[in-house]
């Protein structure tokens, strides 16, 4: 085990996979000489050269479409989209290209392509640099979507994503980059895509979260514990494909569910989770599933306004109490 920051864990995964497989290459804005605006690709250009760690113009739409066809033709591209807020610029390539050809061409092509991006609010970056658009990418069949909360999962899941034969959207969070955690040593320690992690066991209410919201859920569990409520916190880790079995197991135990996502509420990821639970765990539910997500509005800049709209531990704890009451 090594104590690492989340950004360092990602950096290690990129380095190891690029060493392991010469067809892996990266491109994106400011990732080369500067090492990425969040320093995730620090030092990689020096180690692997301009050709494999490539700075690009500001051209998300073309970059994404190019990544898809590069993946089809023998390489394993890792594309960095600087902010999740810029995902809408990539959408044609994801919706109409990346996610369809493996199926349409009857498996003749694989598209081993990873799109890394980061989202989330809390630091005053304003409406165009603070969003969580998890639901938007999860809506597209044919894409895998992962959103790790810890350095260990960040590393293990990124390695799995790079080795995957399907397009994977890898969602990071700007407030997690500096968080630290123990990361298992070894080049072949992978975290499988599609498996949730039980962060805390509890008997009274299940809280399902991902990315930074896992930390909020853990804090909510501490608040609830003061009232004698034992919350079970499940870190989904992979948003799609969903680990339905872990969800079922937890709800069969607690009978109460709170679903948390930093994205918008309406048609949001929390809504999808809620619907899934309703459909598959109905007879185990002792109360309606509670959603905790972003209000349906632009994220304001001013601190008191931004803090008011972001989902947090207090809102999660309130939702859990409402479920249990």
């Amino acid at each position: 085990m090594t104590l690492m920051r989340y950004a360092e864990a990602l950096n290690a995964a990129l380095r190891e996979e690029m060493q392991r497989d010469p067809t892996v290459f990266m491109f994106g804005e400011d990732i080369g000489r500067y090492g990425g605006v969040f320093k995730v690709s620090k030092g990689l250009r020096d180690e692997f050269g301009d050709a494999r760690v490539r700075d690009t113009p500001i051209s998300e739409q073309a970059m994404t479409a190019m990544a898809v066809t590069a993946a089809m033709s023998g390489t394993r591209p890792i594309l960095e989209i600087m902010y999740a807020d810029f995902l809408p610029l990539t959408l044609d390539a994801l919706v109409n290209q990346a996610s369809v050809f493996t199926y349409l061409w009857e498996g003749q092509v694989e598209i081993p392509f990873v799109l890394r991006t980061q989202g989330g609010g809390g630091v005053g970056t304003g409406a165009q640099h603070a969003k969580s658009l998890d639901a938007m990418v999860c809506h597209i069949p044919g894409l895998k979507v992962v959103a790790p909360a810890t350095p260990a999962d960040a590393k293990g899941l990124l390695k799995s994503a790079i080795r995957d034969s399907q397009p994977v959207v890898f969602l990071e969070h700007k407030l997690l980059y500096n968080t630290r955690g123990e990361v298992p040593d070894g080049d072949d320690v992978l975290v499988p895509i599609g498996k949730a992690r039980t962060v805390l066991e509890g008997r009274h209410v299940s809280i399902f979260a991902s990315s930074k919201m896992v930390i909020e859920a853990e804090n909510a569990a501490k608040l609830l514990a003061q009232d004698g409520i034992e919350a079970e916190v499940i870190d989904l880790r992979t948003l799609r494909p969903l680990d339905l079995e872990s969800i079922r197991r937890s709800i069969a135990k607690t009978h109460h569910a709170v679903v948390v996502n930093e994205g918008w509420t309406f048609c949001g990821y929390a809504s999808e989770l809620s619907a899934t639970i309703m459909e598959y765990c109905f007879d185990d539910l002792d109360a309606p599933v509670q959603r905790v997500a972003m209000p349906d509005m632009a994220i304001p800049y001013s601190e008191p306004l931004e803090m008011a709209v972001l989902p947090n531990a207090i809102k999660i704890a309130a939702a859990a109490r409402k479920a249990i009451a």
Binding site: I58, D85, F86, L89, G124, G126, A127, Q128, H129, A298, P300, Y301, S302, E303, P304, L305
Partner: peptide
């Protein structure tokens, strides 16, 4: 981020807009 700002703190430094002067916007999407 104050109430007296052009957008009452909602827009911030990149996303400021003011109709009366025709300044329709900073924009943070390149």
């Amino acid at each position: 981020g104050r109430e007296t700002g052009y957008c009452k703190g909602r827009g911030g430094h990149m996303l400021l807009g003011d109709v009366t002067t025709g300044m329709l916007g900073g924009n943070a999407i390149v």
